[in-house]
Design a protein around this nucleic acid. Sequence first.
DNA 1: TTCGTGATTTACT
DNA 2: GTAAATCACGAAA
Length: 214
Amino acid sequence: MNLTDDQVLTPDFFTDRPTGEIAKDLLGKLLVYHSPLGPMGGYIVEAEAYLGVDDPGAHAFGGRHGKANDPLYGAPGTVYIYAIRGFYAFDVVTQATSEPQGILIRAIEPAIGTDLMLKNRPRGEFELTSGPGKLMQAFDIHDTKMNYQLLTDSPLKIYRQPTKQPAEIGRGERIGVRTAENWEDQFRFIVKGNPYVSKSRRRDIDFDHYGWLN
DNA sequence: TTCGTGATTTACT
DNA sequence: GTAAATCACGAAA
């Protein structure tokens, strides 16, 4: 796999358009964690948009702003890692500084360093990276030390190339968030038919192409 | 195979 | 003390 720095997504990718659109655009992009033991990662197959102060499901809803979610108020492309029930999850901050929107990277299809990830998280089949907590376990990330880092400067990077193209993009309600009434929750985006999408049903899986065109 | 429940850890109030 | 953008397991069909 040929990974070059000039293909790393820069801050401009994460601003100047709606966060939902950015989340959709992240599907098929390559997420790589350059760990001390070597690179590991895969293609993003599931992402959720969180729309800031007006979004009842967002950490920054109503302007909430504390030590834990402070990275959300940083520049576009900032890493935001947070703890949830004994696990960790990984967000990318979107929109201008002080506009606390972000995208939760929920699942990837392993493509690089799969052996390393399996060592960190010995689970078979599609259980390796099919959820935000699982993903961080596979990367062996168990702290929030990378908070505030820009993707361009961090061991965590998302690449423009190589890439995969989803045959069909699915849209739906976000997982595990209580949403208020009158709030349209259609901000979860998935590669339809990919087995690493969390909570996917076996009969919905496209075993021939995993939901990709290429 | 799908759904429901409880475990468990971090960080804020 | 309590809530939380989750996970794994057990039960039922």
